[in-house]
């Protein structure tokens, strides 16, 4: 399961670009600071490699393997 903490995200798009399975997508949704937060588009594809969690400069992505 992938959770994105919208309050922490600064919309750098690293997760969208570097997820090997392209789980994330750019969304139209702005957070309260005016950044476009990513959208977890195809969560079923996720294999839980945690690359996004570790690449995220903001601690905004939480991957839980279930």
């Amino acid at each position: 399961m992938i959770e994105i903490d919208e309050h922490l995200c600064k919309g750098c798009d690293i997760c969208i670009e570097f997820c090997p399975l392209k789980v994330f997508e750019k969304s139209e949704k702005l957070n309260r600071k005016g950044y476009y937060v990513p959208l977890v588009a195809c969560e079923d594809e996720c294999v839980g490699c945690r690359l996004c969690e570790l690449l995220c400069p903001e601690f905004a992505i939480i991957v839980t393997n279930e």
């Binding site: 600064k10 798009d13 690293i14 950044y35 570790l54 995220c56 400069p57």
Partner: peptide, 14 residues
């Protein structure tokens, strides 16, 4: 944190 958007310092902290 106060690092700019996409700053590498955040990734290093992580």
């Amino acid at each position: 944190h106060r690092f700019c958007t996409g700053c590498g310092c955040g990734t290093v902290l992580n």
